[in-house]
Amino acid sequence: MLLELRDITKVYRVGVETIHALRGVSLGIDRNEFVAVMGSSGSGKSTLMNVLGCLDRPTAGEYRLTGQLVSRMGAAELARIRNEQIGFVFQSFELLPRQTALQNVELPLIYAREGIWGWRSRRRRAIEALTRVGLASRMTHRPNQLSGGQKQRVAIARAILNRPAILMADEPTGNLDSATTLDILALFRQLHAEGQTVIIVTHEDDVAAHCKRVIRLRDGQILSDLPIEKDQAGRFVDDVNERQRQRAAARQTPPARTGEAAAC
């Protein structure tokens, strides 16, 4: 197991109210899985993602990542884990506005423990990552000179720079139009094909259909955890007309999904 959650709970206190965002989530994810986390708004997807990404600590429960007990670590150790093991992609990109695409991609190296690899190898690595997301020609552009899809590519390049154990994305296509969404999803699929473990949070069945496994949450608990048929996912991507037809079919056929489709 690459990562293992055991009975994770997360409780928020706002004034006198207590909000149970996660109530006893247990799951395991292996290397090179491609997982979608789905659920209605407020079901605890982001909370789970933040715990998985070591951005937040669970109130109770155990979280092991590559054998390390992450749920007991302090802020500095968690920062180290985030730097070395995790690549996080946000819905709103989170690029530094005054820095070029290349400088934005280089950011995690600044906080890397193994120190300086030299200016050249650092640059080479950032350029490599940008090339992999197809932005070799936009390296010196600033975020305000890039389209939404390009910004998200820069963010993905930044996330994969340190060759993380897991690439995580919380609604990565939430701010993008449908054509750009397909581009970005194709990129995730490609990274997965190259061996990357990927976890994506999404509202949309279309997006989830690109993944291999879907975890559904409701009220902070796991509702279902099912694999997606391989050929089904393949058909979704290869042909636009087929995709649209399949989408219509998908809305009716799998009974577990109907509730969420209505919610979207």
Binding site: L55, A75, A76, R80, R82, F88, F90, E94, L107, Y111
Partner: peptide, 9 residues
């Protein structure tokens, strides 16, 4: 963001 990509306190 800096913290998210691994900046320690």
């Amino acid at each position: 963001l800096r913290k998210a990509v691994g900046a320690t306190p």
